[in-house]
Amino acid sequence: MAYPRARTTDLLLQSTGDDLIVFDQQRQLAHTLNRTAALIFKHADGTRAVADLVAVLQAELNEVADEDLVRMALGRLGRADLMEHAETPSMDALRASRRRFVRKVGMVGALTLLLPMVETIVAPRTALAQSGDPTCASDSDSGCESQCLTGCNSDSQSLSATQCDQFCFCNSNSNSASNFCGSDSVFCASA
């Protein structure tokens, strides 16, 4: 990935505060990217090498930004399926980058805020956002028919992916829920 390129298709973007919300219409996932992750996402356009992205972070955030920080961000974005042709680093590799960066900057609060964060949730089916009644209007005129399935089983009511190891992905093409967390499918990247 000499010139990393972020995905641009089937995504909705919304800036809010320092964060960027990215809604993946293909996978029905919503991500929030903190400032570091958002800067890399915006500037990884296939024309900039990692060194160039380091320079972006140094200019926009802090001079302590380095290649480890950029690779961490690229890794988080790749795991969230927000990069084209992503090299998906292992969690061990990400942790190693994180350790090196933290060691470099020390555990100074403000500087650890530079660490890239990508938090992901599955956009709920309509039924999952209801109380007491799993039925949305299922008439064919409504346009929300596909949203009104009973959806995931009762084990998957909690769809927040704040805990990587408990991430449960509700397959949009079926009514079954499968535990999606594995060694190479960790979406949230706050570890």
Binding site: L12, Q14, T16, G17, D18, D19, L20, I21, F23, Q25, Q28, A30, T32, L33, N34, E119, I121, V122, A123, P124, R125, T126, A129, Q130, C136, G143, C144, Q147, L159, S160
Partner: peptide
């Protein structure tokens, strides 16, 4: 953060998928 707050709202939104 603002983005995290928005996500907490989104995961409780009735038409989150069709009106994203």
């Amino acid at each position: 953060s603002a983005g995290q707050g928005a996500l907490r709202l989104l995961e409780n939104t009735v038409m989150a998928r069709t009106r994203s």
